[in-house]
Simulated assay, not measured.
Amino acid sequence: MTNPRPHHRYYDLLLASFVVVLLCSNFIGAGKAAEVDLPYFGKVVFGAGILFFPISYFFGDILTEVYGYSYDRRAVWAGFAALAFAAIMAQIAIALPVAPGSYMASYQQGMEVVFGNSWRVVLASMTAFWFGSFANSYVLAKLKVWTEGRFLWLRTIGSTAVGELIDSSLFYVLAFYGIWPINEVIAVALAQYILKTSWEVLATPLTYQVVSYLKRKENQDYYDIHTNFTPFRLKV
Protein backbone atom coordinates (compact mmCIF):
# COMPACT_ATOMS: atom_id res chain seq x y z
CA MET A 1 0.00 0.00 0.00
CA THR A 2 1.47 3.34 -1.00
CA ASN A 3 1.42 6.40 1.20
CA PRO A 4 -1.28 8.91 0.23
CA ARG A 5 -0.10 12.10 -1.35
CA PRO A 6 0.01 14.83 1.31
CA HIS A 7 -2.64 17.51 1.10
CA HIS A 8 -1.32 21.05 0.74
CA ARG A 9 -3.72 23.90 1.38
CA TYR A 10 -1.93 26.52 -0.70
CA TYR A 11 -0.01 24.66 -3.41
CA ASP A 12 -2.78 24.83 -6.02
CA LEU A 13 -3.23 28.55 -5.39
CA LEU A 14 0.51 29.16 -5.80
CA LEU A 15 0.58 27.03 -8.95
CA ALA A 16 -2.30 29.00 -10.50
CA SER A 17 -0.68 32.31 -9.52
CA PHE A 18 2.62 31.21 -11.06
CA VAL A 19 0.97 30.36 -14.39
CA VAL A 20 -1.06 33.60 -14.46
CA VAL A 21 2.05 35.74 -13.83
CA LEU A 22 3.96 33.84 -16.49
CA LEU A 23 1.26 34.27 -19.13
CA CYS A 24 0.62 37.93 -18.38
CA SER A 25 4.29 38.92 -18.32
CA ASN A 26 4.92 37.18 -21.63
CA PHE A 27 1.80 38.20 -23.55
CA ILE A 28 0.88 41.59 -22.07
CA GLY A 29 4.05 43.22 -20.79
CA ALA A 30 6.34 41.92 -23.52
CA GLY A 31 4.55 43.96 -26.18
CA LYS A 32 5.63 47.36 -24.85
CA ALA A 33 9.14 48.79 -24.82
CA ALA A 34 9.76 51.21 -21.96
CA GLU A 35 12.71 53.38 -21.01
CA VAL A 36 14.30 54.14 -17.65
CA ASP A 37 17.28 56.30 -16.73
CA LEU A 38 19.57 54.30 -14.42
CA PRO A 39 22.67 55.49 -12.54
CA TYR A 40 25.91 54.47 -14.29
CA PHE A 41 23.94 52.84 -17.15
CA GLY A 42 22.09 55.86 -18.50
CA LYS A 43 18.88 55.32 -20.45
CA VAL A 44 17.93 51.65 -20.72
CA VAL A 45 15.18 50.30 -22.97
CA PHE A 46 13.38 47.22 -21.68
CA GLY A 47 10.19 45.24 -22.18
CA ALA A 48 7.46 46.11 -19.70
CA GLY A 49 7.13 42.41 -18.90
CA ILE A 50 10.51 42.60 -17.14
CA LEU A 51 8.76 44.31 -14.23
CA PHE A 52 6.54 41.29 -13.70
CA PHE A 53 8.34 38.22 -15.09
CA PRO A 54 10.68 37.97 -12.05
CA ILE A 55 7.59 37.33 -9.93
CA SER A 56 7.54 33.86 -11.51
CA TYR A 57 10.98 33.26 -9.99
CA PHE A 58 9.62 34.52 -6.68
CA PHE A 59 6.94 31.81 -6.84
CA GLY A 60 9.49 29.24 -8.01
CA ASP A 61 11.70 29.95 -5.01
CA ILE A 62 8.78 29.60 -2.63
CA LEU A 63 7.56 26.35 -4.19
CA THR A 64 11.01 24.77 -4.07
CA GLU A 65 11.83 26.03 -0.56
CA VAL A 66 8.57 24.88 1.01
CA TYR A 67 7.38 21.90 -1.05
CA GLY A 68 10.55 20.73 -2.80
CA TYR A 69 11.96 20.51 -6.32
CA SER A 70 9.39 18.04 -7.64
CA TYR A 71 6.48 20.35 -6.86
CA ASP A 72 8.15 23.26 -8.57
CA ARG A 73 8.99 20.98 -11.51
CA ARG A 74 5.26 20.34 -11.95
CA ALA A 75 4.60 24.08 -11.84
CA VAL A 76 7.27 24.73 -14.50
CA TRP A 77 5.71 22.18 -16.84
CA ALA A 78 2.25 23.68 -16.21
CA GLY A 79 3.64 27.11 -17.10
CA PHE A 80 5.40 25.76 -20.17
CA ALA A 81 2.21 24.09 -21.39
CA ALA A 82 0.23 27.29 -20.77
CA LEU A 83 2.75 29.33 -22.78
CA ALA A 84 2.63 26.83 -25.65
CA PHE A 85 -1.17 26.83 -25.71
CA ALA A 86 -1.35 30.64 -25.57
CA ALA A 87 1.18 30.95 -28.42
CA ILE A 88 -0.76 28.51 -30.62
CA MET A 89 -4.10 30.12 -29.75
CA ALA A 90 -2.75 33.59 -30.59
CA GLN A 91 -1.48 32.47 -33.99
CA ILE A 92 -4.77 30.75 -34.85
CA ALA A 93 -6.82 33.76 -33.76
CA ILE A 94 -4.67 36.08 -35.89
CA ALA A 95 -4.87 33.77 -38.92
CA LEU A 96 -8.68 33.52 -38.88
CA PRO A 97 -10.43 35.60 -41.60
CA VAL A 98 -11.42 39.04 -40.36
CA ALA A 99 -15.08 40.05 -40.38
CA PRO A 100 -15.98 43.10 -42.52
CA GLY A 101 -15.82 46.56 -41.00
CA SER A 102 -13.25 49.17 -40.04
CA TYR A 103 -13.44 48.27 -36.35
CA MET A 104 -12.43 44.63 -36.91
CA ALA A 105 -9.74 45.67 -39.37
CA SER A 106 -8.24 47.95 -36.72
CA TYR A 107 -8.67 45.24 -34.09
CA GLN A 108 -6.84 42.75 -36.30
CA GLN A 109 -3.91 45.13 -36.64
CA GLY A 110 -3.77 45.53 -32.87
CA MET A 111 -3.77 41.77 -32.34
CA GLU A 112 -0.95 41.35 -34.83
CA VAL A 113 1.12 43.99 -33.05
CA VAL A 114 0.55 42.63 -29.53
CA PHE A 115 0.30 38.88 -30.11
CA GLY A 116 1.90 38.38 -33.51
CA ASN A 117 5.43 37.79 -32.29
CA SER A 118 7.55 35.76 -34.66
CA TRP A 119 7.92 32.09 -33.88
CA ARG A 120 11.62 32.69 -33.27
CA VAL A 121 10.84 35.06 -30.40
CA VAL A 122 8.14 32.76 -29.00
CA LEU A 123 10.39 29.70 -29.09
CA ALA A 124 13.26 31.69 -27.60
CA SER A 125 11.04 32.84 -24.74
CA MET A 126 9.76 29.35 -23.99
CA THR A 127 13.21 27.77 -24.21
CA ALA A 128 14.77 30.40 -21.97
CA PHE A 129 11.97 30.05 -19.41
CA TRP A 130 12.29 26.24 -19.33
CA PHE A 131 16.05 26.16 -18.80
CA GLY A 132 16.14 29.16 -16.47
CA SER A 133 13.33 27.96 -14.22
CA PHE A 134 14.75 24.47 -13.79
CA ALA A 135 18.21 25.88 -13.08
CA ASN A 136 16.74 28.20 -10.46
CA SER A 137 14.90 25.38 -8.71
CA TYR A 138 17.86 22.97 -8.86
CA VAL A 139 20.33 25.47 -7.40
CA LEU A 140 17.98 26.47 -4.61
CA ALA A 141 17.22 22.85 -3.67
CA LYS A 142 20.90 21.94 -3.60
CA LEU A 143 21.86 25.04 -1.60
CA LYS A 144 19.17 24.25 0.96
CA VAL A 145 20.71 20.85 1.60
CA TRP A 146 24.29 22.17 1.64
CA THR A 147 23.45 25.05 4.00
CA GLU A 148 21.22 22.81 6.16
CA GLY A 149 18.32 25.19 5.71
CA ARG A 150 20.18 28.35 6.71
CA PHE A 151 20.73 31.58 4.79
CA LEU A 152 17.45 31.71 2.89
CA TRP A 153 18.53 35.01 1.35
CA LEU A 154 21.60 33.35 -0.12
CA ARG A 155 19.54 30.55 -1.62
CA THR A 156 16.87 32.74 -3.19
CA ILE A 157 19.21 35.39 -4.56
CA GLY A 158 21.86 32.88 -5.63
CA SER A 159 19.42 30.60 -7.42
CA THR A 160 17.71 33.54 -9.12
CA ALA A 161 21.06 34.93 -10.24
CA VAL A 162 21.84 31.60 -11.94
CA GLY A 163 18.37 31.09 -13.39
CA GLU A 164 18.01 34.63 -14.70
CA LEU A 165 21.52 34.52 -16.20
CA ILE A 166 20.55 31.45 -18.23
CA ASP A 167 17.13 32.90 -19.08
CA SER A 168 18.39 36.29 -20.26
CA SER A 169 21.38 34.88 -22.14
CA LEU A 170 19.36 32.24 -23.98
CA PHE A 171 16.44 34.48 -24.86
CA TYR A 172 18.36 37.35 -26.42
CA VAL A 173 20.83 35.11 -28.25
CA LEU A 174 18.12 32.81 -29.63
CA ALA A 175 15.70 35.63 -30.47
CA PHE A 176 17.98 38.35 -31.84
CA TYR A 177 21.39 36.93 -32.77
CA GLY A 178 22.03 37.80 -36.40
CA ILE A 179 19.30 40.48 -36.31
CA TRP A 180 20.80 42.89 -33.78
CA PRO A 181 24.52 43.69 -33.59
CA ILE A 182 26.18 41.31 -31.13
CA ASN A 183 27.26 44.14 -28.82
CA GLU A 184 23.62 45.30 -28.62
CA VAL A 185 22.44 41.77 -27.83
CA ILE A 186 24.96 41.56 -24.98
CA ALA A 187 24.16 45.04 -23.66
CA VAL A 188 20.40 44.50 -23.58
CA ALA A 189 20.71 41.00 -22.08
CA LEU A 190 22.99 42.35 -19.36
CA ALA A 191 20.62 45.20 -18.52
CA GLN A 192 17.64 42.83 -18.32
CA TYR A 193 19.63 40.43 -16.13
CA ILE A 194 20.53 43.19 -13.68
CA LEU A 195 16.94 44.43 -13.51
CA LYS A 196 15.50 40.94 -12.98
CA THR A 197 18.02 39.93 -10.31
CA SER A 198 17.64 43.24 -8.50
CA TRP A 199 13.92 42.54 -8.22
CA GLU A 200 14.70 39.33 -6.28
CA VAL A 201 17.02 41.20 -3.92
CA LEU A 202 14.32 43.78 -3.19
CA ALA A 203 11.71 41.05 -2.68
CA THR A 204 13.82 39.18 -0.10
CA PRO A 205 11.94 40.50 2.99
CA LEU A 206 8.62 39.47 1.42
CA THR A 207 10.06 36.06 0.52
CA TYR A 208 10.99 35.49 4.18
CA GLN A 209 7.48 36.34 5.32
CA VAL A 210 5.68 34.18 2.75
CA VAL A 211 8.00 31.19 3.23
CA SER A 212 7.67 31.39 7.01
CA TYR A 213 3.88 31.59 6.78
CA LEU A 214 3.57 28.65 4.38
CA LYS A 215 5.94 26.41 6.33
CA ARG A 216 3.91 27.03 9.45
CA LYS A 217 0.50 26.59 7.85
CA GLU A 218 1.45 23.63 5.66
CA ASN A 219 3.65 22.01 8.32
CA GLN A 220 6.10 21.45 5.47
CA ASP A 221 9.80 22.23 5.02
CA TYR A 222 11.10 19.86 2.37
CA TYR A 223 14.76 18.94 1.83
CA ASP A 224 15.64 17.44 -1.56
CA ILE A 225 18.09 14.85 -0.25
CA HIS A 226 17.03 11.85 -2.34
CA THR A 227 15.27 13.73 -5.12
CA ASN A 228 15.46 12.66 -8.74
CA PHE A 229 16.31 15.98 -10.38
CA THR A 230 15.48 15.01 -13.93
CA PRO A 231 13.23 17.69 -15.40
CA PHE A 232 11.43 15.13 -17.60
CA ARG A 233 8.78 13.88 -15.20
CA LEU A 234 5.67 15.14 -13.42
CA LYS A 235 5.56 12.79 -10.45
CA VAL A 236 5.89 14.39 -7.01
Score class of each variant (00 low, 15 high):
A187Y: 07
T207A: 10
Y10M: 12
N219P: 02
P181G: 08
E164M: 13
T204M: 13
P205K: 09
T207K: 07
Y172T: 11
V122H: 00
V44R: 04
V19T: 14
Q108D: 13
Q192M: 11
W119L: 14
V139C: 03
I225D: 00
I55D: 05
L170E: 10
E112I: 07
K235V: 10
A84K: 04
F27L: 10
T160H: 00
A16P: 03
A161G: 02
A141N: 03
A78L: 09
R233A: 12
T197Q: 02
N26R: 05
T160V: 08
R9L: 13
G163W: 05
S25F: 08
Y69K: 01
R155N: 08
D221I: 03
S118Y: 01
V185M: 08
S168K: 05
I62G: 09
T2S: 14
D167H: 12
S198L: 15
V45L: 12
E112Q: 14
I182R: 13
S125Q: 01
R155G: 07
F115N: 08
Q220M: 14
V20G: 04
T64Q: 02
R74N: 01
F53A: 07
P231G: 05
T64K: 03
I166G: 05
V19G: 05
R5G: 02
L165I: 12
N136P: 00
V113Y: 11
G79K: 04
V210A: 10
Y177I: 13
A105W: 04
E148L: 04
F229L: 08
G68S: 04
S125I: 03
L206I: 14
K196M: 09
R73D: 01
F129W: 12
Y57I: 02
Q109A: 15
I194P: 04
F229G: 00
G101F: 06
R73I: 00
K215V: 04
G68A: 02
E184S: 13
L14S: 00
V66H: 09
Q109R: 11
K215F: 01
Y57G: 12
S102G: 07
V44I: 15
A93M: 12
F52E: 02
T156F: 04
L202V: 14
T147M: 08
E218S: 03
I225C: 06
V66I: 11
I166L: 15
K196N: 07
V210E: 04
G60E: 11
K217C: 06
R120L: 09
V44S: 03
T160G: 14
H8C: 00
P100W: 03
N136R: 00
P231E: 09
F85Q: 08
